[in-house]
Design a protein around this nucleic acid. Sequence first.
DNA 1: GTCTATACGGCGATAGAC
DNA 2: GTCTATCGCCGTATAGAC
Lengths: 193, 193
Amino acid sequence: MHTKEKILEESLELFAINGYEGTSMTKIADKVGIKKSSLYAHYKSKEVLFVEVAKEMVDQNVEFVRRSLDEQAPDVKTVLYKSFKTHIHDMATDDASIQFYNRFMQNPPNGLGGELTASVEKSEKQARGLLENVIAKGQASKEVTADLDATSIAHMYFCLIEGLANETTVYTLEEVERHAESVWVIFWRGVKI
Amino acid sequence: MHTKEKILEESLELFAINGYEGTSMTKIADKVGIKKSSLYAHYKSKEVLFVEVAKEMVDQNVEFVRRSLDEQAPDVKTVLYKSFKTHIHDMATDDASIQFYNRFMQNPPNGLGGELTASVEKSEKQARGLLENVIAKGQASKEVTADLDATSIAHMYFCLIEGLANETTVYTLEEVERHAESVWVIFWRGVKI
DNA sequence: GTCTATACGGCGATAGAC
DNA sequence: GTCTATCGCCGTATAGAC
């Protein structure tokens, strides 16, 4: 019922913060407000629960990128800039979904990496596809250089976001946002006509 | 003696691959070729052992950046490009030190993050300083634009490297190196005069 | 579906013989 | 310094009453 979803929600947060081995079924049960053994009525093992959460996050990643792209923005530069800022902001403000995604796409739990890699690769391709469209539009409207192909530029874009995501552990929100600002300037300098 | 160093070496690899909670003292002992209890003659706890490894990695990070900068290269563009390629290559070829660094700087074990953040921040600052010098030289020789400050450019550089590091789990060596190549082109386009 | 009780193994860590 | 033996605890997971 409603409990099953709550388990997903709460374990998402715990996995994101404490990792897979660092999150016990007892801690999840405590956070949900039930006993450990009751979890097994909804998910037959910890691995199954984790994979369920992970699959949701992979799907959500594409949706997140889609929503970050503002269709109403006046030009491609603004679309990209707004999307960039949205990503950075949500990362830096401890959004559990994004932390989960960043954490486990880079270092999946021991046996479960293989089970996820395929779907991650697919979702990253989709997300990159959305950006490629925007960039291609910018090339058509002479905002973005045609010397580079849209795929490479989209790749660079995600590379920057992931690089900045890594900083969130060490640096403060303000520092990351300031870094993001200068990173953006160089990026745009690199891709504009 | 020689055992104490071997413990550091072997646990470095295990921590890098399986994480902190995913690495047991038994597994470390097995890899070293001794019994678990013998480890405690060298390091009084798992936490102490981990912190010891982590501190070495933090120091090594600065040295790694220093060595990647070729003093003999003809111009600043070449210095940066060679350094960039060295980083990518070592990451992609499963260098345990770099994997350890990337993994735990982003997601330190639960109680030990605070103990490391300060020294990480310091070492990253030193490493960035080395790059800033190179970039400032490039600005003086009119290779690199003076519209951007050297700190921002150095920051961008590390951001790209970390972003590419994240890919190594999902993509193959060839793919990452190909991505790195186009990332470099955009980067240089963004910072050259 | 949730509970209590329990099984069983692996964990980090210590004691003490050699 | 390394071993065997052992401690106490907590991990995942199951059985069975309600």
